[in-house]
Simulated scan of single mutants.
Amino acid sequence: MKKFIVFILAGLLTVSVFAQENNKEKGVFVIVEDMPEYPGGDLAMRDDIAALVKYPEAAKDNGIQGKVYVTFVVNEEGNIEDAKIARGVDPSLDKEALRVMNALDKTWKPGKQKGVPVKVSYTVPIKFALDGGAAEEKKIARGEGSDAVFFVVEDMPEFPGGDEALRKYIANAINYPDVAKKEGIQGKVYVSFVVEKDGSVGDAKIERGVDPSLDKEALRVVKALPIWKPGKQRGEPVRVQYTVPINFALN
């Protein structure tokens, strides 16, 4: 009988180029001065989601695995609303990911803009992975030995100043490409990278692009990120993969 593991990808950030409303009618922001915060932080959210997920039997029987990206809004009261699939894998996995996000019963610390609680869009990638039992350790990492790259570790990498500082750094560093502005091109670019043992950023690549100009700019900014506090597994620095969705939005 197959076992399975489900985990949230290392990167849980949604970064926008501008502190602007994503939808003028709904008043939903993509980045604000004080971002929403799950009780206990990102690690607590990973644990709570993993505890709630039930791997669909049909998906297990057919060996279906993959990453499901769920986007939702944290409203002014700190509750989740309007959860939907941003990028799916299979109807059964998509449905389960959506069910779990809607089932989280903890109230977030709401996001604030100019001191006032507002609605904020948030994205969480959830990976469904089947495992044969003995190979479970390999499912949370790729490669072997000192070169192995982990997806989840006991002590996750940390950007100087934390997640909020990373959001602001990327938003300030990005130069919206003129060609994209002229053509009205917008969208969310998913960039993955590895935080090396010394805290440097390497192996940056586009996981999901929008347009060559936006993809190139997102990649440029990520490659220039400063030194992180490296991730650790069993007390030892290890290489850890991180994913950042960067939202390019025009006023």
Results as ranks from 00 to 15, higher is better:
Lys2Tyr: 10
Ile8Tyr: 00
Leu9Gly: 11
Thr14Ser: 03
Ser16Val: 03
Val17His: 03
Phe18Leu: 10
Asn22Gln: 12
Asn23Gln: 11
Lys24Ala: 15
Lys26Pro: 00
Lys26Met: 12
Gly27Asn: 12
Val28Ala: 04
Phe29Ser: 06
Val30Asp: 14
Ile31Thr: 13
Asp34Gln: 15
Met35Gly: 01
Pro36Tyr: 07
Glu37Ser: 13
Tyr38His: 05
Tyr38Lys: 10
Gly41Lys: 09
Gly41Arg: 11
Ala44His: 11
Met45Asp: 09
Met45Ser: 05
Met45Glu: 14
Arg46Asp: 14
Asp48Glu: 15
Asp48Ser: 08
Ala51Gly: 05
Leu52Ile: 08
Lys54Met: 11
Lys60Tyr: 02
Asp61Trp: 02
Asp61Gln: 15
Asn62Ser: 15
Asn62Val: 04
Ile64Trp: 05
Lys67Ala: 12
Val68Ile: 12
Val70Cys: 08
Phe72Cys: 09
Val73Leu: 06
Val73Asp: 12
Ile80Thr: 03
Glu81Ile: 11
Lys84Ala: 12
Ile85Ser: 03
Ala86Leu: 13
Val89Gly: 08
Pro91Arg: 03
Lys95Ser: 15
Arg99Ile: 04
Val100Asn: 07
Val100His: 05
Val100Cys: 08
Asn102Val: 02
Asn102Met: 11
Asn102Gly: 12
Ala103Gly: 03
Ala103Met: 14
Gly111Val: 07
Pro117Ala: 08
Lys119Arg: 15
Val124Arg: 12
Phe128Thr: 08
Asp131Lys: 07
Gly132Cys: 07
Ala134Phe: 11
Glu136Ala: 13
Glu137Asn: 04
Lys139Tyr: 08
Glu144Tyr: 02
Ala148Met: 00
Ala148Thr: 00
Phe150Pro: 04
Asp155Trp: 01
Pro157Tyr: 06
Pro160Gly: 01
Gly161Gln: 10
Gly162Lys: 05
Asp163Gln: 10
Glu164Ala: 15
Glu164Gln: 13
Ala165Phe: 03
Ala165Thr: 06
Ala165Arg: 04
Arg167Phe: 01
Lys168Phe: 07
Tyr169Pro: 05
Ala171Asp: 07
Asn172Ser: 14
Pro177Lys: 04
Val179Gln: 10
Val179Ser: 15
Lys188Asn: 10
Val189Trp: 04
Phe193Ile: 04
Val194Thr: 11
Ser200Lys: 15
Ala204Ser: 14
Pro212Thr: 06
Ser213His: 09
Asp215Ile: 03
Ala224Lys: 13
Lys229His: 11
Pro230Thr: 08
Gly231Arg: 00
Lys232Tyr: 06
Lys232Gln: 13
Glu236Val: 15
Pro237Thr: 06
Val240Gly: 05
Pro245Tyr: 07
Pro245Trp: 09
Asn251Ala: 09
